[in-house]
Amino acid sequence: MGILSRFLCLWVWLAGVLTGVQLQAQERRASHCIALAESAPGLHYLHRASWRQPVASDTLHIRYIAHASFLLRTNGGLNVVTDYTGFIGSAPMIPDVVTMNHAHDTHWTSQPDPGIAHVLPGWAEAGGGVHHHLDLGEMLIRNVPTDIRSMFGGVEPQGNSIFVFEVAGLCVGHLGHLHHIPTPAQYAALGRLDVVMAAVDGGITLPLDEMLEVLGRLKSSVIIPMHWFTDPSLQRFLSQVATQFDVVDDGRSSLDVSLRTLPDRPTVFVLRPRYLAAEE
């Protein structure tokens, strides 16, 4: 066999070896570490994504902080906190925007951090409601006023706001301390909400049957329960919605949402509240 023939044989053999290695790498089986951890008695494996992690393009990161407070974080690093009470945890983060409602002091603060660039109350001190239309480029924040029950049994017209966040091609709504089924005009002003945060306490805001009516009308792809106080009250809501919606309850505190990852049918994602920690 000549030198050229030997070289060609060697080249063919080497190419075959490299191809085999490449195929082996592509077909590598997924690690069983997580599966083993989940199957071990008494152990629970949770994906705990840090609020500091970068957010993918065309995606919104939603983190449940507490009660009715959520962190909305964008790809550009914009941080928005809903129903801001003045405390979000030990994390050294000052939000760019906070929204508030004043039905109870667990939904607002009279002394927001002076470093917050935009503080958006959902009511007007003089009454008559307030209207916000804050265009931040990456996100548009607007509100739809609704009425609330007053402390003395009456009604405070336009004392609550449903805040709507238009970002990453999504329309995200936070119903706030909703006390009545929205009117046709209010539904029209809201538009189609891809994601909705809804109070499911069953009475302090709306009775569950009325909240289910609202959620059915909104037809949102993602429903995130809030304002549920105890696990039994949350389970009462879940038991009633399970016949209408899919339910995902896997212990997570956050959710990344984009147009391409919206579920095919309305789905309730249960997020467990967790304050933002400095060590994350």
Rank of each mutant, 00 (worst) to 15 (best):
E27K: 09
V80I: 15
L212F: 05
D83V: 00
V81N: 02
V248M: 13
G153C: 02
V119G: 02
A35P: 03
L218K: 03
R48D: 12
Y45V: 15
R63K: 14
V195S: 03
M197C: 13
G89M: 04
W228S: 00
N101K: 06
V222I: 12
G169A: 04
A56I: 04
L78A: 08
L134P: 00
P225F: 03
N143M: 09
R192P: 14
F70T: 05
E210F: 08
A103W: 12
G153D: 01
D83K: 03
Q22L: 14
F245Q: 07
R192M: 09
L136H: 12
I3S: 13
S69L: 01
E125M: 11
F269W: 15
F269E: 07
A277P: 03
G216R: 12
R192Y: 10
N143A: 07
Y45C: 13
F269T: 09
D83T: 04
L206E: 01
A277C: 07
D246V: 05
Q26W: 15
W108Q: 09
M197R: 07
G86N: 02
L255W: 03
L218M: 15
Q53D: 14
L175F: 11
S90L: 01
L43G: 05
A188M: 05
E213C: 09
L18C: 12
E279Y: 11
T74G: 01
G173W: 11
A126W: 09
H107Q: 14
T99V: 02
R260C: 08
N160V: 05
R272V: 10
Y187F: 15
I181Y: 14
G153L: 00
W51F: 07
D194A: 08
I162P: 04
V155G: 04
T99P: 00
E138M: 06
L78G: 10
G86A: 02
S161N: 08
Q22I: 09
E213N: 06
M100C: 02
G2M: 05
P121K: 06
L120C: 05
S258H: 08
S39N: 13
R6W: 08
G129N: 03
H118F: 09
S5G: 10
E213R: 13
H133A: 12
M100Q: 13
L46R: 13
L276R: 03
A15L: 15
A40C: 09
L136M: 12
E213M: 08
L271G: 08
T183C: 01
A117K: 15
L238S: 10
R6A: 14
G137C: 04
L136D: 10
G173Q: 09
H133E: 12
L46Q: 09
F7R: 13
H44W: 09
R252N: 11
G42K: 06
T59F: 03
T109D: 01
A117G: 13
E156F: 06
S31T: 13
S69A: 13
A242W: 08
V268R: 10
L72E: 00
V130W: 05
D194T: 06
S254T: 07
M226N: 11
P112R: 01
G251V: 03
F269S: 07
L215V: 02
P182K: 00
Q111N: 13
W228Y: 15
H177T: 13
R63G: 07
R28D: 07
H67P: 04
L120N: 06
I141W: 06
A198E: 07
V200D: 02
D209R: 10
N75I: 01
T261H: 12
Q53F: 02
T59V: 02
L23H: 08
W123C: 00
A185Y: 04
P207K: 04
V196A: 06
L178Y: 02
